[in-house]
Design a binder for these strands. Structure first.
Lengths: 320, 320
DNA sequence: TTGTATGCGTTATCAG
DNA sequence: CTGATAACGCATACAA
């Protein structure tokens, strides 16, 4: 590692005090003469401040800890892209916690010990312990995904999503509907909110609800079990991934139901038939998260905020 | 932000000098008496060292800059998982450069100015400028994906991949093969190496090669153009994604060729039919990257290393 | 406008 | 084994 040039070196070379250089760098008052002198020297020696020294001095830094439950998902990477989009001078320290709350807790504690200036938690599924660690940390924090009353949050409008899908499914006039849902204690926004409108639209219609899992293979099995005993002409899954599982079972069973999914995934346009699904812009969600985070960090007396992102139903071949 | 307790506080409380505390913390010689005293106090006040002060003092830190071309890809997230897997005390600063070499250059410079202790560059596609910036930085660096002679690297055995697929395709005895490749100047490992064995196996057989793009939609169009004029009974794409594009065109054209892809993607097991493809373990690649990085960082007199990851052909429905 | 002096939290040197 | 002191690079209060 080649020695980096420090503010002291610059000061020596320019024959001024280092405080003058510091002022010069931070936009303090400097005479035209010294400014010009320093312009050249800083350029020439390619000076960049030592961020550790800065952070140590200023007791804060521009690193934001971002906790993501998984990385192999378009929703997550779109949100991260949204964060990047609006970012100017922050650095995101992204930590994948592999959907494991023990890892999540450890990550938060590690981030704290690294003195990050705040926390952005994607697709939060907080345990009581995690909640209290965050609150104890006093770090500016913004979460996404669950409607946690005590935290600043950006959430997807799953109620609207369910309502929209409910309206649409009535037009489809199905004879027998299979709902593939997930346990609401695992994900309330999905397991509960997303299905309120659907169930109300389904009132009086023949249908069956199965609780399955986010994983493709498990969803596939659950769907298979249900479909082998009963014929469905419309399948609604809590996520696109779940629907794809069902599609594979239908393929195996030579059935051809219609499908509706949720989410914006690789799947919607790569499976055949292309999937009708209710989609949220996670990219927008990412931008909102960053905006909200800035507000919270720069103005720490702010009231808890709640931002809701709407989505829309994209009709594709799977409901034709 | 609640004041963190510092080594000074601990020293005051324990009634010893802070240098003693420091020694205690770093495993220096301390009397049993003071050790026990400090044990309790450090526990009680939940002391953690200030990483900025440490880094400032030690002129180095445990942050590794990781540059990734995109995040919405299983290959990338698997490699990141591999890095995590073996990591003990490093922090990865992951930067998505959106497959844009200008952003990549900027990212490298930013990481440098943040004094990261090294660089891991995934799926490197280096420009001359980037090469020279990395070399000038003197940072321990490990790259992945391209066989860059001047850098420590972990590469996938695309030669073996092509050879294996070549052997297999001969058994399939196709009548007319469509190769969907990408420009080798964009990605030499894929565009060239991966197809050497295939082309040699194809020698004398009817086939056509089209240069298309990694993007699904473009691949779909290219495939469509080719398939509308000619019948193919086997399609080999440079990546799974490209093959999925071709599948969609085949679907539209009511053709049913067989398919072979490359990569380990969401697609292989979600499309119908499931895709036969040559798969690499990017998870293993990630682990090797980290191992190699450690070697390079901890032993900077080491010779440039080159590690090759083999893969294997997974036969699924698309070639039945 | 400029320079001096001090401190951020830590580690390292060196004398006791 | 211990403690005083300096130093890492920077920012700032204060004095000039």
């Amino acid at each position: 590692m080649n020695k980096k040039v420090t503010i002291n070196d610059i000061a020596m070379i320019a024959n001024v005090a280092k405080s003058t250089v510091s002022r010069y760098l931070n936009g303090g008052s400097v005479s035209v003469h010294t400014r010009e002198k320093l312009d050249g020297i800083v350029q020439k020696y390619n000076y960049t401040p030592n961020t550790f020294a800065q952070s140590l001095k200023q007791q804060t830094n521009h690193t934001i800890g971002v906790i993501v439950p998984r990385l192999d998902s378009i929703a997550q990477s779109d949100m991260l892209r949204g964060l990047d989009e609006l970012n100017i001078d922050d650095t995101f320290l992204i930590i994948n916690v592999y959907q494991d709350s023990a890892r999540e807790l450890a990550a938060i504690e590690k981030l704290q010990s690294q003195n990050v200036s705040g926390l952005i938690i994607l697709t939060a599924n907080l345990t009581e312990e995690i909640r209290s660690v965050i609150k104890a940390s006093k770090l500016p924090t913004v979460i996404q995904g669950q409607d946690e009353a005590e935290f600043n949050r950006v959430i997807m409008n799953d109620i609207q999503a369910g309502k929209t899908v409910g309206n649409y499914l009535q037009k489809l006039a199905p004879k027998n509907v299979l709902l593939l849902n997930v346990d609401m204690s695992l994900d309330y926004a999905v397991g509960h909110d997303r299905f309120v409108g659907i169930k109300s639209a389904l009132n009086g219609m023949p249908h069956k609800e199965i609780i399955t899992d986010f994983k493709l293979n498990i969803a596939k099995q659950s769907a298979y079990q249900a479909m082998i005993h009963e014929d469905f002409d419309l399948i609604i899954g809590a996520t696109d991934r779940i629907v794809v599982g069902a599609m594979q079972s239908a393929f195996a069973l030579h059935q051809k139901p219609r499908y509706i999914g949720f989410g914006q995934s690789y799947f919607s346009e790569t499976v055949s038939p292309n999937l009708t699904s209710f989609e949220f812009s996670f990219f927008e969600a990412g931008k909102e998260l960053y905006r909200l985070f800035r507000k919270v960090r720069d103005n720490n007396t702010i009231q808890i905020q709640r931002i809701v992102i709407d989505g829309k139903l994209i009709i594709r071949d799977s409901t034709n």
